[in-house]
Design a protein around this nucleic acid. Structure first.
Length: 549
RNA sequence: GGUUUGGUAGUUCAAAUUGGUUAGAAUACGUGCCUGUCACGCACGAGGCUACGGGUUCAAAUCCCGUCCAAACCGCCA
């Protein structure tokens, strides 16, 4: 037996009992006649008192000790086991460690190459460990939710067929015949639709998906997705499930009981925020430029007015208007803060003010609430505009006031197609049903889930009619030959009595980022790839030498 | 694929007078000291071909070119 207790559980109640502990040597403090060791395992840290200084033990050695739990003279309130220490009677070295090439207690921001290379050591970092614990918890909560709601968990293949739409696919060589390959799935899209056709009513899966695109801090080439699909439902039914899930998660993680999840149309979102994924807590957005870029003719010749909106600004406890003014003091010539209750917060001279009035009239009132702050910046050069935007964003991001605010929104009524370089592309994906089943309005029955400005998931009601599906493929410019080659089985499957169905795919890692107010996805992945999609630890991708058939 | 910034002790970072003495600190490491530390403290020591290769120069960490690597952004991400 390696241990009777772990390093995080002993307290006053265990005093005088003999215990056996195993773990890593976290730190060593030598005094004149005694030595203190912080012994660390997954569960915590326990202080060992060794009544000698002649020990041959270094940091990160794995040791096992037997000793007596005693009350400390001077408790340490920073750790759970701070009331006690172990008076060690016997030490055994289970395994030695060579010098550690990275500092496991430090946060690394630049030059992360060592972190990738020695990821297995950095897993001992407290923050990273806690991140993995919370990710595991969230996965459990999600599974529990879908069990309660009678979803069936079904796995789908990872060796699949490449299709011409979408991101680049990773390919896997086929051993039996040269020149043939499998493709790793970007999502289980086709298979989950086939499950619906097969009569599975509610399906979900937590599944690895693969996209061969360059990584970002919220993007990895392989990632976890919560995939779900339901039959005999319309968009409102799906919205209800999504809302229920998010509320369940926010309650289980943060004990937040009341939350209002808004459903907004794509058109209005773009008009108001000029982005597809607004962060309604605080983020600064450029008001639609056509309306708000004005040259002022007389005194302010060459100056331009930029409008910004800080949604819900006045809901944020602890921030007042002066904070923003102070923040921008030296950067710009004039600031005008404006709130829809018609409060002009600081004064400008009349000529400028008249221009602002003009702008005011152009704003469609329905978009703004009296909790929004409108900010007009009068600037000489437009390069300052981005600096200011970033400055405000960074400031608000760092401020503690936002820590417990979550504003999930569902955006719907996206365009069905976008036109680029003389070609039509699906805005969502080619299986999306047109809004009201009509192609002519170019609206899709698709929806995105955005939490605090992070695009967490997107989904749609699917086309359940073979003719419609064929039509959409043709609009997308797929030749008859290609349709036949890539989708003939699928078009055929739709003819055998397809139920109306739809679903959503939610990026688990992004969901976690949004629910925990974090920004880098690799902090929640045990073994991430770097921005070139390489794994610097196992050194992959690697070169092919011989392909044997 | 593109743009920008960067690569300096094991680690995290400085600095180097627009190219000119011996490239520093903290921490980690080693040795010694210190009855109670817990970010222990004190003293001493060891640690660098300034990413790699080439060029300019009396002289390069510094300027130039190339390669490799990293970060942010863009492209891309149905």
């Amino acid at each position: 037996m390696y241990r009777t207790h772990n390093c995080g559980e002993l307290n006053k109640k265990h005093c005088n009992s003999i215990v056996k502990l195993s773990g890593w040597v976290h730190s060593i403090r030598l005094m004149k006649k005694i030595t203190f060791i912080d012994l660390r395992d997954f569960y915590g840290i326990t202080q060992l008192l060794i009544p000698t200084i002649k020990i041959n033990i270094k940091k990160e050695y794995v040791i096992q000790i037997i000793g007596k739990v005693v009350k400390r003279k001077f408790p340490n309130f920073n750790i759970n086991t701070g009331d006690i220490e172990i008076y060690v009677k016997k030490i055994k070295i289970l395994n030695k460690s060579i010098k550690i090439p990275i500092d496991i207690n430090k946060e690394y921001n630049k030059n992360k190459v060592k972190l990738f290379k020695y990821r297995y050591i950095y897993l001992r970092n407290l923050n990273l460990k806690n991140n993995l614990i919370i990710k595991s918890k969230i996965l459990n909560i999600i599974r529990k939710f879908f069990i309660i709601n009678n979803f069936l968990e079904i796995e789908t293949p990872l060796l699949v067929k490449s299709t011409s739409e979408g991101a680049r696919n990773f390919i896997v060589l086929y051993r039996k015949k040269l020149g043939y390959y499998y493709s790793l799935p970007q999502s289980p899209q086709t298979f989950k639709q086939l499950l619906m056709i097969g009569g599975i009513d509610k399906y979900y899966q937590i599944v690895k998906c693969f996209r061969d695109e360059d990584a970002r801090k919220d993007r990895q080439p392989e990632f976890l997705q919560l995939d779900l699909e339901m039959s005999f439902i319309n968009r409102k039914n799906i919205f209800n499930i999504i809302i229920k899930l998010i509320k369940y998660l926010l309650y289980k993680i943060h004990k937040i009981k009341f939350i209002n999840i808004k459903i907004l149309s794509y058109k209005n979102i773009i008009k108001k925020y000029n982005t597809e994924k607004p962060d309604l807590r605080y983020k600064v957005y450029e008001l639609n430029n056509n309306k708000f870029k004005y040259n002022i003719n007389n005194k302010f010749l060459n100056y331009k007015i930029y409008g910004l909106i800080l949604p819900n600004y006045f809901n944020i406890v602890g921030i007042n208007k002066d904070v923003i003014i102070n923040l921008l003091k030296n950067k710009i010539n004039k600031i005008l803060l404006y709130n829809y209750k018609n409060n002009i917060i600081n004064k400008l001279d009349n000529k400028v003010f008249n221009k602002i009035k003009l702008i005011k009239e152009l704003i469609n009132k329905e978009f703004f609430s009296n909790k929004d702050l409108l900010l007009f910046l009068i600037l000489k050069k437009n390069k300052y505009y981005k600096t200011i935007k970033n400055k405000i964003n960074n400031f608000l991001l760092k401020s503690k006031y936002l820590n417990n605010i979550y504003i999930p929104i569902i955006i719907y009524k996206f365009p069905l197609f976008k036109y680029k370089n003389g070609k039509y592309y699906s805005y969502h994906h080619p299986f999306t049903k047109p809004y009201n089943n009509k192609l002519k309005n170019n609206l899709a029955d698709s929806y995105d889930l955005i939490i605090n400005g992070i695009e967490v998931g997107s989904g749609s009601i699917r086309i359940d009619n073979s003719k419609m599906q064929n039509k959409v493929f043709k609009i997308l410019g797929l030749s008859n030959n290609k349709i036949k080659k890539e989708f003939s089985f699928f078009l055929k499957s739709l003819k055998f009595g397809t139920p109306p169905h739809g679903g959503i795919g939610i990026g688990i890692d992004r969901l976690i980022l949004s629910l925990l107010n974090k920004n880098n996805i690799i902090d929640f992945i045990a073994f991430p790839k770097n921005y070139l999609n390489k794994d610097l630890m196992i050194k992959t991708p690697s070169k092919i030498k011989n392909i044997k058939i």
